[in-house]
Design a protein around this nucleic acid. Structure first.
Lengths: 211, 211
DNA sequence: GTCATCATGTAAGCCGTTACATGATTGC
DNA sequence: GCAATCATGTAACGGCTTACATGATGAC
């Protein structure tokens, strides 16, 4: 799921790991506070499989009147040892998404496993996929919750009787699920109402800098 | 957290692993569907540390007119190889909670780390702890959510603008958190309103068979 | 006698975390 | 020059899952 988050953010702008993490925390909040220990390996994995690739960081180092890519080269040289030429001024490695990666993004959104962690992430980035896939995502989630609601009601009798905390928890739970379903149904209506719109959003044209 | 669930269920009745799992699924529903691969090791862990102990299963094997513990002994013998004498007819190992385990239960409820997984479990079993601990639990959770709500609002501007899915997700999220807080506040009121009640519930007296 | 279910466990692996190590850059 | 922050990584570990292995019991 981390991969989905990475790919989704890279659709909006090219980023390096450190900032990816910040934006992820910002965009998704408490849901997806991810650590470097999993972020960097994930980036390497995605790079190996061709979903992202390191790009020249277009960022001109401040303080030096930008004599072409010279200063960047120096920094890369001084930084030494690793991926070398793609490292930016501050030893940064800026990533961009590839066409392969865009396909992977939609594959991940299409993946039927949407638990509480995965779904919000999918929803946040599904705008880069085609409409039918988005509808499918919303329907699937709604159906999952509907099924859960049934189970919930089925097992309402019995256990809760002796435990007022458990009873309250379950009632609250039931209401929450109902609200979620209503919300999803609203999103589905929006989705079908606007299906005359352009199919899906593409990423920013190459060259336009995000942020 | 699995340990809390085990201890909590054992407060109500003596159980063996297999049924523990069923009841857990029943009581907590989708939240805590646990696998044997983690359940049995957890039970062994708890037994080693003295929080639970294997007990004679009082269950008389049906079809045999119960000539004392004879048939049980035979089954245990035939079952062979392991913990031997505490195994019931069907090679079951029935566990009960110890005083040590009861203390451990309250320690776990008191533990300040309550994420989305842990809190419902704590709430479900906090009735075995003393009132101040319960109040503390509810307050802590409410405060956590209140803080989250603030952060949420702080970062509302910006990102959501271009993404109607993300915007909707956040709005829904905010409302959900507010509802949760209101709910918790209600529970807190109940808690302080009923503090003339007997301190806390103890487990069933030894010998009374649950279920 | 065989199949479904009950019952207990082990092994491998996934996905994430914390803690640690390293070094560049900026501000003072 | 020193601390704070930016930036990238590695190592160890944790908790849980899946898949596998084993065997008892009951229904038919």
């Amino acid at each position: 799921m981390l991969e989905l988050a990475i790919l989704g953010l890279l659709m909006e702008s090219e980023l390096h790991g450190y900032e990816l993490r910040k934006q992820l925390a910002d965009v998704m909040g408490w849901r997806a506070a991810v650590s470097f220990g999993s972020l960097y390996p994930a980036l390497n994995r995605l790079e190996r499989e061709g979903s992202v690739k390191a790009v020249e960081s277009a960022e001109a180092p401040p303080g030096i009147p930008s004599t072409g890519s010279f200063s960047g080269e120096v920094a890369a040289f001084r930084a030494g040892r690793r991926g070398a030429s793609v490292r930016g001024p501050r030893n940064k490695k800026v990533y961009g998404i590839t066409p392969e990666g865009e396909r992977r993004l939609c594959t991940l959104v299409a993946d039927p496993a949407d638990d509480e962690r995965a779904f919000p992430l999918k929803l946040a980035f599904c705008r880069y996929c085609e409409a039918p896939l988005r509808v499918e995502l919303l329907r699937r989630r709604r159906d999952t919750l509907a099924r859960r609601l049934d189970e919930h009601r089925a097992s309402m009798s019995g256990h809760s009787a002796a435990n007022r905390y458990l009873r309250s928890l379950r009632e609250h739970d039931t209401e929450s699920i109902q609200r979620d379903i209503t919300w999803l149904e609203g999103l589905l209506v929006d989705e079908t109402a606007t299906d005359a719109e352009p199919g899906f959003q593409t990423r920013r044209a190459d060259g336009t800098k995000g942020h």
